[in-house]
Design a protein around this nucleic acid. Structure first.
Lengths: 202, 202
DNA sequence: AAAGTGTACATTGTTGACAATTTGCAATCT
DNA sequence: AGATTGCAAATTGTCAACAATGTACACTTT
């Protein structure tokens, strides 16, 4: 069901775990993270943990204060949130439009696998799994662009939107929104795909 | 003349130095950076150098490959560049508009000091100094917003644009563009300020 | 009491040694 | 010759000890 992601390095594994805990609100905004605690928990020294902290800081999930350590970042303020939405839409729509003609059968089938995971998560009302697969879905689209730098540009923006956020009353709507994006892509209807993507990002 | 910036930590000092060398093309895209070289050069151990590498990676100036070290990032491709411009404009205009009513005399006077540095740099045809003060100018605007997270959002985008500073035939134009922004702000003409800012970002 | 001061304690920052990985090149095989 | 394998050197990754910094709290001073 869930595609196991491969993380090459130790810090990446630690970061992935912590990211999941931040996105699932197991770690809440303002919570301090201690290097020693986590190094003991993961059975490594403080080095890799520090490195993981840096990666998550870069992604906007943690905030670093010199000599004071890191805390879980606050959600974007109500004032800034519309800006973040606009930025994320700008990037994702840019990517979708520029890859549209070159989308392969493999791409679509890959995205449909993720869509299946989204469906399962929605049906079992598993918000954490939904967040994970929602993220994977959009990541997969961004990553299909040749310019790998786009991913680095997109990630911190998207992460800020993913933090502790559930805008939908009915969790099933998330599945439907992503389904509509893929349907439009399959149909070769670029404008409809962009519209569906836009609807999904808010 | 030039306002000396204070960098609290060792890695910040190293990162500032390296950033200057990347932005001034003393370090060129693709150039590898070795931890030992730099730790010897700055008279510190590899730790703080690694930390500086992470900061610059976060800002998009370096790219990191696990077990292979860091290299100076490539400039944005011609395809992606318009996107970066759009993103940077979106953020800076958002900030300018939302702080516009609350701009103080101190703010303007601060920005005028930087403008003076820009003028000096233009007059002496010092492209490196111009890059530095241009950056300071826009940083100062972003930082005047209450939400400090905006700066983290803006920085990697702006850095990617600063990496090749060649668009103007006459370097004096850079001074004039920034001057126009401040004039409009002083006159309380929000629309004109936005237009001037938009012109400056391309 | 309130404000300031000193001192442990907790935590992050830095260092140098060692481990793991990558890379260049020479030796070998087909 | 071209490809493959096997070292040796260069480089990054990890660790544990020590240094510097920040924090909490009792203690003094007014």
């Amino acid at each position: 069901m869930s595609t196991p992601e491969i993380y090459r390095t130790l810090p990446e594994q630690i970061a992935a775990r912590l990211r999941q805990e931040v996105l699932s609100s197991k770690l809440k905004p303002g919570d301090p993270l201690r290097e020693v605690d986590l190094s003991e928990r993961f059975g490594v020294s403080r080095g890799p943990v520090r490195e993981a902290f840096r990666q998550l800081t870069q992604q906007g999930l943690l905030v670093l204060e010199p000599n004071k350590g890191v805390r879980v970042a606050e959600n974007p303020s109500v004032e800034v949130r519309p800006l973040v939405v606009r930025l994320r839409r700008t990037i994702e729509i840019f990517v979708l439009e520029s890859i549209f003609e070159r989308i392969t059968e493999d791409d679509v089938s890959n995205w449909e696998d993720i869509l299946a995971d989204i469906k399962t998560a929605c049906e079992s009302n598993d918000v954490d799994a939904l967040t994970e697969h929602d993220l994977r879905f959009h990541q997969a689209i961004i990553r299909s662009h040749d310019d790998k730098d786009l991913f680095a540009l997109w990630q911190p923006i998207a992460m800020r939107m993913m933090m502790h956020y559930n805008r939908l009353d009915d969790i099933m709507d998330s599945y439907r929104e992503h389904e509509r994006i893929l349907e439009a892509i399959r149909a070769g209807d670029r404008a409809a795909a962009v519209r569906a993507l836009e609807t999904n990002i808010q």
